[in-house]
Design a binder for these strands. Structure first.
Length: 196
DNA sequence: CTCACGATTAGA
DNA sequence: CTAATCGTGAGA
């Protein structure tokens, strides 16, 4: 399991470092392991795309102000959960959105949770999809990802891979922050949220 | 209390 | 391309 120190850095740095690591989810039904292949950084008060822009502290964004290593799960469009990892020190609202993962173990459980007919590559290639696949919902908001047996991060194999960057998705409202290259993904991976 | 809308997805 | 669908945050 990754220690809390891993998360106590800037969101951009953690977002890049998270690629290739493993997300572990344990439920009553069993264990699911997935490799993180795509992330986005949301950098604190100055980032207009961040829910906690301008240090806006509300009931929803409260978790982002926690110290690095906590989870931030929220509901978007009234129907989808998104899973984020809080980064930086306490009081700094920074987080990394996990946008896509690649199934490593527990594929049968993932299929059971998703309940769709489409192909295997569509199981976890989007923030809402992977949350559903791993049974992540708002009951997991604000938990410690470094001291917990239901949901945590684990160091992945140290394979070499190329990290690409790009603009973040669907944040057109963020004005000059819309085009910041704060999305990171593993090159030539087929489980990304969009095809390149 | 009302009310508009989104860090999305599935399906036509 | 659009509908689905509801917690959230702002304002009265």
């Amino acid at each position: 399991m990754l220690k809390q120190e891993f998360y106590l850095r800037g969101a951009i740095e953690v977002a890049k470092d998270l690629l290739g690591h493993l997300l572990v989810r344990k439920t009553k039904q069993g264990k699911i392991v997935a490799r993180i292949v795509e992330t986005e950084a949301y950098v604190g008060p100055e980032d207009k795309a961040c829910h906690a822009y301008d240090n806006k502290k509300t009931k929803r964004t409260k978790a982002m102000f926690k110290a690095g290593g906590y989870s931030y799960v929220y509901l978007i469009y009234g129907m989808h959960n998104c899973f984020n990892v809080v980064t930086a020190s306490k009081g700094k609202p920074e987080a990394v959105l996990i946008r896509a993962v690649e199934p490593v173990a527990g594929l049968d459980l993932i299929k059971q949770n998703r309940d769709i007919k489409s192909g295997e590559k569509n199981l976890t290639n989007g923030p809402g999809k992977l949350s559903q696949a791993l049974k992540i919902d708002r009951s997991l908001n604000g938990i410690k990802l470094f001291e917990n047996d239901k949901l945590y991060l684990k160091a992945g194999p140290k394979n070499k891979f190329t990290i690409n960057t790009g603009a973040r998705i669907n944040i057109d409202y963020a004005e000059e922050y819309t085009d910041k290259p704060w999305r990171f993904y593993i090159a030539e991976n087929s489980f990304l949220s969009k095809s390149y």
